[in-house]
Design a protein around this nucleic acid. Structure first.
Lengths: 181, 181
DNA sequence: CATAGCATGTAAACAGTTACATGATTAT
DNA sequence: ATAATCATGTAACTGTTTACATGCTATG
């Protein structure tokens, strides 16, 4: 596990909130970080084992009936590693947007094809926006009551405003295609 | 080379504009698709060889002095493959945003750390915006004169509006942190 | 008793970057 | 001369997803 591996930091971060099992980390991420970070279980389980070996997390098995659950807790060493990473400059890694790639080469197909791609994207955005707005509203109240740190709210707000911008761009883009093809 | 490999489509698309060498494809992408798509030379050269084997591009060596340059041209077969891909629904692959990940776990470090990350992002955005705006202005004129398809303009406009939104979000985010920590 | 969800894990295949290697050409 | 850039390519490493395998538990 090299230093560039970000899965480890995502997991340490999750465990900095509270002790969790691998499965719970997955569910937690699905409901909160999914729009800017995902991890597959093929990454989560091996990485948790590696972090255990490095003593950056500790593992306690608890049983619900005969069913074992491994609850991981971040250690002091793990916490220090997480903090050290948080202090470092953000590393930008190039984005890949398949929609924009297809539109860029849209000249090779009829305009209605590109318009259909944009309309499909509009739908995805509308769905995402509804989701984020609910989460943002709830978080906003909790932040004001100091029941939750402001940091979660920031990321949701980023999601909301970016999706709104994309929606406006979709409308604009369709108009442009209709006008100039 | 499986069907999911998108590098091949990015290259076929590039060659649908005009015949180019691998090096020129790289340069072209650096100046136009970089904000939504990049390819490294470790991907470009092998993929061009595979596409040649599949007869989706043809290769002609030209010499500038003793220096060989391989100019690739898209074939009918390659064009059909590109079009078929353009017709297919856009496949969304999960985004990864390290800035938002670090902010999400910002509770573990002093607020000034998160604010510094956001300010660094602001700088990146300002630089990107200046770049995109120039390109957008030029393209806009060319589109109106029908000297260039509208599709390039769409992707730059997406870049401009997203970066503007990010800039506004940065200001908002810093205010929120200052208020609630 | 079947099905969905809980829970953990592995292996294979694929994707992608980085560093290295090579050598010509152009500009200073 | 020497540095930068043009130009092509390979190999090693790392990262990531997908599909598979396993088996328990709760619900209708």
């Amino acid at each position: 596990m090299k230093n560039g591996n970000k899965t480890q930091y995502a997991l340490l971060g999750a465990l900095s909130i509270e002790p969790m099992s691998g499965y719970e980390i997955q569910k937690m991420m699905a409901g909160s970080t999914n729009h800017f970070w995902t991890e597959s279980n093929g990454q989560i389980y091996p990485t948790l084992q590696q972090l255990t070996k490095l003593k950056e997390v500790s593992c306690k098995e608890s049983y619900v009936g005969a069913k074992p659950r491994k609850i991981y807790t971040i250690t002091k060493k793990g916490m220090q590693k997480l903090q050290q990473w948080l202090l470092q400059d953000v590393v930008i890694h190039p984005a890949r947007n398949e929609l924009l790639l297809k539109l860029f080469y849209g000249q090779n197909v009829p305009p209605k094809v590109s318009i259909a791609h944009i309309k499909a994207h509009e739908l995805r955005c509308i769905r995402a926006l509804a989701l984020y707005k609910d989460i943002a509203k709830t978080l906003e109240k909790m932040v004001k009551l100091k029941q939750r740190p402001v940091y979660f709210l920031l990321t949701v707000k980023a999601g909301v405003s970016l999706v709104k911008t994309e929606l406006a761009w979709c409308k604009d883009a369709i108009k442009l295609i209709n006008k100039y093809t």
